[in-house]
Design a protein around this nucleic acid. Sequence first.
DNA 1: GTAACTACTATACAAATGTATACTGGTATA
DNA 2: TATACCAGTATACATTTGTATAGTAGTTAC
Lengths: 126, 126
Amino acid sequence: MKTINTETGKKHTPQACSQFVLPVRDTLDLLSGKWKLPILGALMFGKKRFKELERDIPRITPRMLSKELKELEDNQLVTRTVFDTKPVTVEYEMTTYGKSLEKVLTAMKDWGTQHRKRIMGKKKQA
Amino acid sequence: MKTINTETGKKHTPQACSQFVLPVRDTLDLLSGKWKLPILGALMFGKKRFKELERDIPRITPRMLSKELKELEDNQLVTRTVFDTKPVTVEYEMTTYGKSLEKVLTAMKDWGTQHRKRIMGKKKQA
DNA sequence: GTAACTACTATACAAATGTATACTGGTATA
DNA sequence: TATACCAGTATACATTTGTATAGTAGTTAC
């Protein structure tokens, strides 16, 4: 069985492959769901209340906002703080950990920006 | 209407937000689908034929392999080359463009690896 | 002539994900 | 007493995504 590629010299084994696939999948899963990016995008500019997020993110329903915020909280990217005002206010804020993911997101943004140009450019020629 | 956050000083406008959300979504979409990562993972070690990929990726069906390879090809991350042998052989290979995405994937892998440790660590304490 | 190889495609179904719409409980204001 | 605010939840449905299983066409080996 061939396990060594002549070009890269790297071994292709189930082990080597899963050391790539599993952690990338973990990162990807944090961002999966239609509304994670808009929520993180909104929170990148500072903390926000539930209703503020609902207003800032067009077409999101409270069900989805609640659900995806909970997932972001579970993954420690966002904190939820309840204030005993009347009526109650709840603030959502990015954690420093969440900000560490921002660096990865910025790499994705930069690649995506030039990809968008590349695809648009091709369309012009077609 | 409040558009300036006192902490970051960055403006939060629909425009600023979509300049983040849209390109990140583009990058994310390229990787969406259960089998994209295993396929890219396999092709990172060199070119492969259809049947080789089918054998290397446990439990993938030919339908999904075909479908996801087509999407990777559409996005210019992978090339498909048909050889006039008998029976025909078809080779799939990462493009240099695909390799430029590898850098982003590596950032995701690194973040995901330490995230995995963090989550595992928390579980031990619970 | 029949079995096996390659690289797929077709059909039907199951599971996951997202949407629409309405509703809850507590407080304050008119 | 009626209405509005906040931060959600409940239920049913629609859409998207993935799976299971079988079949295609062309060639070669037995």
